[in-house]
């Protein structure tokens, strides 16, 4: 049985380990104060207790965030409209191609919509994904209004029997007011059934800022964390589930079309749970 002092220093150690895996500082602090509370309630007397309580806290974070089966969402809405959003370069366009393949493999007839009319090469990027996957893409003109590209795509889709639309948006900083307004307009026009925030697994403390700003601006229904192949034990999924209370639905694990995994909470929690060997 440990003294309170010893437990406190163990909690500090745990907090640092979480921070070292890019759990946002703010989130790591809140988790450690919940651990302290558990100590005060007499629930923790040993290293093992501490680890067990921490594990429960982490699992509870994800349970509170709930879970979503994207395929069920797609089945329930015809045509199902999905909008992908996020800051620059996180992997939105690549993820769209992956989800389109997933939907196609599950019997859907998806249409990818290139509503990024801003970034150089964005249209061609999705066109090449279309050539390689055989999944059609609806393109727009560079410089044109992304909301109107999306609107036209919806008309097109309903007349051609597509049952899922995956709408790509240009990467944008969450603090860029003009671009955030542009995104709001896309969402207003499209009325998506599901808005997916895409976040890079290697992001530091900014991950929760991105999540907060996008959620405030247009609302986020679910999160996909990309580039997890570069950082399996990274804390971004935990930070975002904690801050948003929204589920992480998939993890991107590479650049290929099949490199997408359903997010497994238990596997993940075991992976990021710090070892208390010292």
């Amino acid at each position: 049985i440990f003294s309170r002092e010893k437990l406190e220093s163990l909690i500090d150690e745990l907090k640092l380990e979480l921070v070292a895996s890019d759990v946002a500082y703010e989130v790591a602090e809140e988790i450690s104060s919940r651990l302290l509370k558990a100590v005060d309630e007499g629930l923790v007397r040993s290293r093992e207790d501490l680890q067990r309580v921490l594990k429960n806290i982490l699992i509870e974070v994800f349970e509170k965030a709930g879970s979503v089966d994207l395929l069920s969402v797609a089945r329930a809405n015809k045509p199902c409209k999905l909008v992908f959003l996020g800051v620059n370069g996180v992997g939105k366009t690549t993820t769209i191609a992956k989800i389109a393949v997933l939907l196609r493999d599950n019997g859907f007839k998806p249409l990818m919509v290139a509503a990024d009319t801003f970034r150089a090469g964005a249209q061609e990027q999705l066109k090449i994904h279309s050539e390689r996957t055989g999944i059609p893409v609806f393109t727009g003109k560079y410089g044109s209004d992304p909301a109107s590209v999306a609107f036209d795509a919806i008309q097109f889709a309903s007349s051609r029997g597509f049952d899922a639309l995956l709408i790509d948006t240009a990467g944008r900083m969450h603090v860029d007011i003009d671009l955030v307004n542009e995104l709001k307009k896309v969402v207003r026009v499209v009325k998506p059934h599901f808005k997916i925030l895409v976040v890079d697994a290697l992001t530091g403390n900014d991950a929760i800022e991105q999540a907060r700003f996008f959620n405030e601006a247009v609302g986020v229904d679910g999160v996909i964390v990309t580039k997890v192949d570069a950082y399996e034990q990274g804390g971004v999924p935990l930070s975002i589930a904690y801050i948003l209370g929204k589920p992480v639905i998939y993890a991107g694990v590479g650049q290929g079309y099949k490199d997408l995994k359903p997010f497994n909470v238990y596997e993940y929690v075991n992976r990021i749970l710090p070892d208390l060997e010292s």
Binding site: R119, A120, G121, A122, E124, Q125, K127, I128, R132, Q255
Partner: peptide
Amino acid sequence: TFRPAAYDQLRQLGEQ
């Protein structure tokens, strides 16, 4: 030679 349309992206930027 890896990312789809990497060449188009740079070409368009070069034109700009």
